[in-house]
Write a protein that binds this DNA or RNA. Structure first.
Length: 454
RNA sequence: GGCGACGUAGCCAAGGGGUCAAAGGCGAGGGUCUGCAAAAUCCUUAUUCAUGGGUUCAAAUCCCAUCGUCGCCUCCA
């Protein structure tokens, strides 16, 4: 199995630290509003990869955090006149609604920054002791110059960055590249007691502290959007490796951005499409098809046209499956033969190569076509069996979409009433009988015809 | 300005030195089916991989240059 590692810039053979177990940390959202489809991408694909790893026989410990203390949360909470905790609680709960609707399995751990403040303080104190951090006023900064490989993950040179004009200048810092570990408190902000005075954690330190606490000093995969490579992940890596003196993360995985009209979808640009809206308009299957049909590291365009394409593509698979299920029923347990083994090894081959989901879908479309064209019921069952097996990591719902069922029943009721008006009771009774067969109870009343599912 | 990625059919998208006269999807055109229509199904749809050089027996795949697009360098998934 090969995984592209941002640190080395190439695909590497995947060797977990402990055979059979994968420890994986994925950067989760800052919970100050609903997530948008761009936030949903890493959530969906890394969950899918996690399940693929499980499919491949690994036991996966999967951590996804919530950043629940941050400037934007404080600002949003103050604007509403509620506490940051109340606001964060709300959007964490909304996050779970969306992620569940997207078919994402809950992580093994969902840590929140505010539950790890003690760990964070210990972490900072240890860095300070090792001379990687220094205090200025009530702030504590990480000393980048003390960490020689700073810039290795994002492939940049600290000297170039210092020369660049866009690095902020902060009087407090010894070096513009240094970053804050602990922020001295300001009025109207949540604060915690600390050796450096009242304050709160900086952004980057939380992931280092939470991952170390939950996964240990070293773990296998750290993932997130590629906009986090610098400075977030660069800084996390510096802190963690400075503290332990050991290699922290084996494989860094970063997904590409979702764009709208050639511009990155982001809350600051304002071109966002919420996951909830997308779920409502397109549904889980279309969204998953859309996200899986392009390689995770590439940028992907979000547009109604793309989504319609994904919808059509998914329906090709689902309608064939529904057709087949009507024919063979749901009992498609099969004997493992050469055909099954060959197809399975093809699937494993493409996904083992840095999770090539477009290629995986291509295999599925080929098999779906074969399912239509073959007369061999056993072969159909085998394909159906494999599709079911693979759906563990693809996460589709192949069950027919009943969204429009109510409208169809209304139409049938109308036709029945038209027949009643014509006094064509043979026809109307026939419709009522048919509806009953489908589990729909029809009741005529003075206020009109009512119906319900039995 | 610095760093990085990308440019494959009408559109989306794999491939990444020979097995490629390039997967798969969407769309489009034609056939079958059909009272009509739709659906379904079958067939067709890139001598070519941004452009120009180079390396090689061999390049979409490697190297250089040019053009174009995007991302990061500030919060961001």
């Amino acid at each position: 199995m090969r995984i592209y590692n941002t640190l080395s810039g190439q695909k590497e053979e995947f060797v977990p630290l402990k055979p059979g177990t994968v420890k994986m940390y994925v950067c989760g959202p800052t919970v100050y509003s609903f997530i948008h489809i761009g936030n949903a991408r890493p959530a969906v694909i890394f969950d899918s990869f996690r399940r693929y790893l499980e499919y491949r026989g690994f036991s996966v410990i999967y951590v996804q955090n919530f950043t629940d203390i941050d400037d934007k949360i404080i600002k949003a909470a103050n604007a509403e006149g509620i506490s940051p905790k109340t606001l964060a609680d709300r959007y964490i709960s909304e996050y779970f609604k969306d992620s569940c609707a997207l078919g994402i399995k809950p992580a093994t751990y969902h840590p929140r920054t505010t539950d790890f403040v003690d760990n964070i303080k210990e972490f900072i104190a240890a860095l300070e002791k090792k001379k990687f951090a220094y205090q200025r006023g009530n702030d504590v900064y990480f000393d980048v110059s003390a960490f020689p490989s700073y810039g290795a993950l994002s492939h940049r040179n600290p000297a170039d960055m210092r020369a660049g004009s866009r690095v902020e200048v902060n009087e407090n810092k010894d070096d513009p590249l240094d970053f804050v570990l602990w922020k001295g408190s300001k009025p109207e902000e949540p604060k915690w007691e600390s050796p450096w005075g009242e304050g709160r954690p900086g952004w980057h330190i939380e992931c280092s502290a939470m991952s170390t606490t939950l996964l240990g000093d070293a773990f296998d995969i750290h993932a997130g959007g590629n906009d986090l490579i610098f400075p977030h992940h660069e800084d996390e890596r510096a802190q963690s490796e400075a503290l332990t003196g050991k290699k922290w993360v084996s494989y860094w995985m970063h997904n590409g951005m979702i764009s709208v009209k050639d511009e990155k979808m982001s809350k600051s640009v304002g071109n966002i499409f919420s996951a909830r809206e997308a779920l409502k308009v397109y549904g889980k299957n279309t969204i998953r098809m859309y996200l899986l049909s392009k390689h995770y590291r590439s940028p992907i365009e979000f547009s109604p046209e793309r989504m319609e394409e994904a919808r059509s593509a998914f329906s090709r698979i689902s309608r064939v499956i529904n057709e087949v299920d009507k024919k063979i029923g749901h009992d498609f347990k099969v004997v493992e033969d050469e055909f099954v083994k060959t197809q399975r090894s093809k699937m494993i081959e493409v996904l083992d190569d840095d999770f090539n989901t477009p290629q995986a879908l291509s295999l599925i479309f080929d098999l779906v076509s074969e399912m239509i064209s073959t007369e061999d019921t056993e072969k159909i069952k085998k394909i159906r069996f494999l599709l079911d097996e693979w759906n563990y990591f693809l996460g589709f719902d192949f069950e027919p979409d009943r969204k429009n069922a109510d409208e169809l029943v209304d139409l049938a009721i109308k036709l029945r009433n038209d027949a009643r008006m014509r006094k064509d009771y043979k026809q109307s009774d026939e419709i009522r009988k048919k509806l009953e067969d489908y589990g729909i109870e029809v009741m005529d009343s003075p206020e009109g015809t009512k119906w319900r599912w039995k």
